[in-house]
């Protein structure tokens, strides 16, 4: 088989055009390599020490730029809503009826507790170690995905997930508003945050609380998305 047949002409011309384009941009970028400038991020990481949180990335994500995180939660919320809206049909069927692979069933039974514990750990220890709410929530959602594709009997109740989702979303904004009332700044850290307690589970004021809320919200949204995507599979 010649190369010409496997690679269509459009791909080649696409490569050509984008190569010229990228080379032009790269040329501009290479000529203007930034010198060692001091960025806002460095400043923020330095400031972290005043907040008593061991993982400085968490402070930046949850506290200094907490408003962006709230916005991203809103993005995820709307995306999940949209998927639910687009994929909901009147004849909603549950997941496929045929039995899944035996290996998959046993493997899921063995693995899912580990995945859940790992997700919870990542979520709760977000202010002390690597990761946090986003990652932990998604890990939990992937554990739920594993259960959904492996066992027939398992299904998640949307009403039940909705409770978590609602409570998490509402309490995020409410914590922000409490900060506005007490400290005159939205998402202000109104709980005590002792620097001497840095490294303990209970430290950093509202930061770990917000990250756990983010984790619950992300986990429930992702589970609903995955469930919606799986459910429709049968009727087409």
């Amino acid at each position: 088989m010649s190369l010409k047949r496997t690679i269509p002409m459009t791909t080649v011309s696409g490569f050509g055009v984008s190569a010229v384009f990228i080379l032009t941009i790269l040329n501009i970028l290479m000529q203007n390599m930034p010198s060692n400038i001091y960025r806002a991020g460095d400043e923020l990481l330095k400031l972290n020490a005043t907040d008593g949180v061991a993982n400085s990335v968490t402070t930046v994500v949850v506290y200094f730029r907490g408003f962006d995180t709230l916005g991203e939660i809103a993005v995820l919320f709307i995306a999940s809503l949209g998927i639910g809206l687009m994929l909901t049909n009147n004849n909603l069927n549950n997941i496929s009826q045929e039995n899944s692979n035996f290996m998959l069933q046993i493997g899921a039974k063995l693995l899912s507790p580990v995945i859940f514990i790992f997700g919870l750990y990542i979520m709760i220890y977000g202010h002390l170690s690597v990761g946090g709410g986003f990652q932990g929530g998604v890990i939990i959602a992937s554990g739920i995905l594993l259960l959904l594709i492996s066992s027939n009997g398992f299904h998640i109740s949307h009403k039940f997930v909705e409770i978590f989702e609602t409570l998490a979303g509402v309490s995020y904004v409410v914590i922000g508003l409490i900060g506005l009332i007490i400290l005159d700044s939205f998402l202000g850290n109104f709980l005590p945050y002792d620097i001497s307690k840095m490294g303990l589970l209970l430290s950093g004021g509202i930061i770990p609380i917000i990250y756990i809320i983010v984790g619950i919200k992300v986990g429930s949204e992702m589970s609903v998305i995955v469930d919606n995507m799986l459910k429709r599979n049968i009727d087409d």
Binding site: I122, V130, G131, F134, Q135, V138, I139, A141, S142, L145, M222, V226
Partner: peptide, 10 residues
Amino acid sequence: LTQAVIGIGI
């Protein structure tokens, strides 16, 4: 971790 979980996984 984010890339592993979100970018690759879900």
